[in-house]
Design a protein around this nucleic acid. Structure first.
Lengths: 206, 206
DNA sequence: GTCTATACGCGGATAGAC
DNA sequence: GTCTATCCGCGTATAGAC
C-alpha cells in the first residue's frame, strides 16, 4: 500500500483511540516506522490530515444520500440511509470529537457552507416528498423543525455517544440515535409512515 | 480583586474569543501582567482552569433548575428556565467548543455522571408534572424521547450555533434554539400548553 | 518523487529563589 | 504569593541522501 494511504489509516486509528490533540505527528510516524519528515512530506501540516478525513467522510455521506434519491421515499428508507451515514461518521469519529479544530479548519480550508447547504436542501426536499407520498402529515413549520432536528442530530450524535458512555458499542450507539430519529418522525407520521418506524422505536434506550 | 478571580475572568474572555487551544497560559499571564509561574501557582495545570469554569456553569444551571421547582409547571415556564440556562452556558461558551478536552476532564477530574443524572431526573419529573398539569399529552415512550431531545439540545446547541454562523448575536442564537425546543414541545402539547408556546415558535429561523 | 536527519520556536509544567 | 530559570515534547520547516 502507498505510504500516503497507510498514514491516513494509522492516523484515523490513533485519532479515534486517543483523540486528535493527544496524538502527535511523531507518534503517527513512529507507529508507521517512518520519519516525521516523511510524514511532513505527504501531509505538510497536521491539519492536512484532518482535511483529508473530512473529505472522505463527506464524500461517503454524499454517496449514501445520492444513492437514495432513486428509490421510493418512505420513513423506513430514510432511517436506512441515516444508518449508513451514521456508520460512516463513526468510522471517522475522532474528528467529530475535536470540534474546536474542526471549526477552525472549516473556516480556513474547507467549504463547509456548501456541504451544509447540500444537506439542508436534500432534507427539505426529502421530507416534502414524504408528505406527498403519504408518509408524513405536517405543515411548513413542522417540516422546518424536522429538518433542523435531523441536521442537529446528525452532526452531534457521536459527541453525545462518547460523552455519556464510551463502553457502548458502535451498534448500540447507532441504534440509540436512530431510535431518536424514529421517535421524531413518529410524531409527524401517518399510519402508513408509522408502520415502517415501529422497529426503530424500540432502539431508544432509557 | 483577588488574583485568582482575575485569572478566571481573563481566561474566560480569551477562551471565548480565540478558543481554548489557541490561548496559551503565557498569553493569559501576559494579559494580566503577571508571570506564567504565578498563574501556575493559582492553577497548576491549564485543565484546572477549565474545571473551575465547568464548576461555575454547572452551579449556575443547578440554581436555575432548582429555583424552578417552586412555581406551577407549564410549557412556557419551562422555556423561561431554559432561556436562563442557555444564557449561562453562553457566558462560558469557550469550553463547550472544546469537546475533546472537556471529555478528558470529565473522565479524570469531574463527576459528570452525577450532573447528568441530576438533569435527567429533573427533566423526567418535570415533563411528568406537565402531563399532570394538562400541558402535555404524551405516553411514556414519547416522554422519554422528549427528555433525550432536551438533554441533547441543551448540551450541543452552542456548538451548532458557532459552527453554522458566528456572526449571530447571543440573542439570536438563544432564540433560535428556544424555538426548536418550543416546536418539540408543541408536538406533544395540549391546547392549553400550546398557548404558552406560540411566542417561541416564531423564534426558529430558516 | 520519496525519504532521513536535524533544527527552531512555542507550549505546558515544575523547582527553587525572593 | 510571586517571580525567574529551566525542562521536555509538540508542530513545523528544510537540507540533503537516494
Amino acid at each position: 500500500m502507498k505510504t500516503r494511504e497507510r498514514i491516513v489509516e494509522v492516523a484515523i486509528r490513533l485519532f479515534n483511540a486517543e483523540g486528535i490533540n493527544a496524538v502527535g505527528v511523531r507518534e503517527i510516524a513512529r507507529t508507521l516506522g517512518i520519519s516525521p519528515g516523511n510524514l511532513s512530506y505527504h501531509f505538510p501540516r497536521k491539519e492536512d490530515l484532518l482535511v483529508e478525513m473530512l473529505t472522505r467522510v463527506t464524500a461517503g455521506n454524499d454517496r449514501h444520500f445520492q444513492k437514495f434519491r432513486e428509490g421510493r421515499p418512505s420513513c423506513e428508507s430514510f432511517l436506512q440511509v441515516m444508518e449508513q451515514v451514521f456508520r460512516n461518521q463513526y468510522r471517522y469519529r475522532g474528528i467529530f470529537l475535536a470540534q474546536e479544530e474542526m471549526r477552525r479548519i472549516f473556516r480556513e480550508f474547507y467549504d463547509y457552507r456548501a456541504v451544509e447547504k447540500r444537506r439542508k436542501d436534500f432534507l427539505r426536499e426529502f421530507f416534502s416528498d414524504l408528505v406527498v407520498a403519504g408518509e408524513l402529515k405536517a405543515e411548513a413549520g413542522e417540516l422546518a423543525f424536522l429538518g433542523a432536528f435531523t441536521g442537529f442530530l446528525g452532526r452531534f450524535w457521536i459527541l453525545e455517544a462518547f460523552f455519556t458512555q464510551d463502553d457502548r458499542s458502535e451498534d448500540e450507539a447507532v441504534r440509540h440515535y436512530l431510535g431518536m430519529l424514529a421517535w421524531q418522525l413518529h410524531l409527524l407520521a401517518t399510519e402508513a409512515g408509522k408502520k415502517g418506524l415501529e422497529k426503530y422505536l424500540l432502539y431508544l434506550q432509557a
